[in-house]
Design a protein around this nucleic acid. Sequence first.
DNA 1: CTGGGGATGGGGCCC
DNA 2: GGGGCCCCATCCCCA
Length: 564
Amino acid sequence: MSPGEDGLIGIPFPEHSNELLSQLNDQRRSGHLCDLTLTSRGARYHTHRSVMAAVSLYFRRLFGTEEAGGEGGGGFSVCQLDCVAPDALDALLEFAYTATLTVPSSGMRDVLQGAQLLGIQCVADACREILGEEAGDVAEETRVQYTPPKKVTVEEVDVERVSRRKNDRKKVRRIGLNWINHSLVNPSPASPVSQPSIASDSLRSPPSTQSLSPDQELRLKSEWQNGDPESVKEPGRGAAPNGGHVHWIHDRPRIAHPPPVAAANHKPSQNDDTERFGEDGTFMGSTSVPTSASERVAVTATVGEGRKRKSQTPQQCPVCQKIIHGAGKLPRHMRTHTGEKPFQCSACGVRFTRNDKLKIHMRKHTGERPYPCPHCPARFLHSYDLKNHLSLHSGARPFECPLCHKAFAREDHLQRHRKGHSCLELRTRRSRRGPELMDNGREDGGRREPSDPLEVVTSQAHTSAFHPHMILDAASGHGVGPPLMFPGDMDRGRSLALQALSSQLGPHRLAGYSELFLRGLGLRGSREVQVEDPGGTHSPGRLREHWADEVEEKVGDEDVEEEE
DNA sequence: CTGGGGATGGGGCCC
DNA sequence: GGGGCCCCATCCCCA
């Protein structure tokens, strides 16, 4: 969706995905519209092909090859999965339809194996996390870890005991979105040791192989179609607990579908079903994998703007599809997927993925804190810590909440504030921004464009406050604004009201009704007075008008046009 | 909830 | 091209 398109208004419904999943789960439980039956050792589970294809790399590719073979995606199928324990299969189905994996700890290993066989990477990662295993350890059937049976909800698993908490979460998110797309580079999704081999293979692969030519793709598809079931039948690597097969039984009518029009040009990269956003949300550009040096340079030019010079030879991660800039950086990045930590502290044994991080860590043992504060005796391990610390001395709080105008010294604290529910104050219409407002020395007034689409959403989801400017901006067709969102339940009515209004008036007209509409929603009025100068013109936090003012500019322009 | 320190991943520069 | 070093952004944890 592009809110920037003229005349379009985008209204996200954040609950939609949950409701959709819930509906699908209801259908599954009732057997309604189920077009796929999974069997495991006599147990039968009705499900939906589309859901399984969405959640499982195995099914995705299986159905994908069917599609490519003109067999179509409809009909009814039975898939025999004796290599996946019934309980594990049940848990994985529950996960697919609820985004929550509930499994007794004693069955975690079965679930892990099932997840790996079916290519449900995020579940496999979570299981590994719980089992305390590195990727690839699973094949070591000799490892036995007994844990008392207890219910564990993976979605809510608190991995606070694990140092790599954030990374794992990120990894899960990334892989959940993108790993499936890696099917052609990793043609053995069912292999329990596939994940580490991905990395190592990719590291051995020349960069040119990271972008598959159509021929390569077709060849790999063929390999998958022909070879992968074999690999499943022969887990060989200790995968199948019973040495069983994954047996595909076709008993549905074949519906001939023409092969995808762009099959020959279809790349296994982001073009499929994921946006081209990096882990941090950076838009990777409209091209897929850069296949030539010039293309790579072009991508670099669009992605890396922070430094003076472009990075050298961006490479695409075969796992998460992210473009990694800089020569020699891909192996470093790959370790974030493999969990490999080759750098160990000789003093305490802690391991790190990167040598430079180990070096910083060693400062803890040596007592070295190379970043001293010039104003106080404080010293810091990281330069950025010093930077943060210096803001304390300066008193600068350049990061201000656009809604409650609370100022923060650190950007991440503002982000936390905005993502949380602490901002209950709504202050909207302010006097027009004057030139004095950019008084924090930053061109953007302390504002950073949210690079992560999720961040965009959460930014708008911030608090229960309804941010009218977003509507106006989107409706006015200026287009730079993110999509609309009314995050809280209390705003749902407003959302519905907006829908109704928009449907009657049309988005263009809606913009013209800004004042009326907002007044009707009771979102303007008394606040206007108190926000005229909430902090004093020269207060440290008077750096204001980030997102709000930016869109307010547009609103003002719109108003002028309306008056004219 | 906020302030502050630490951890971690990505990018740029350089050798 | 690989890797070291550094800076930066972001996240997590704790008080």
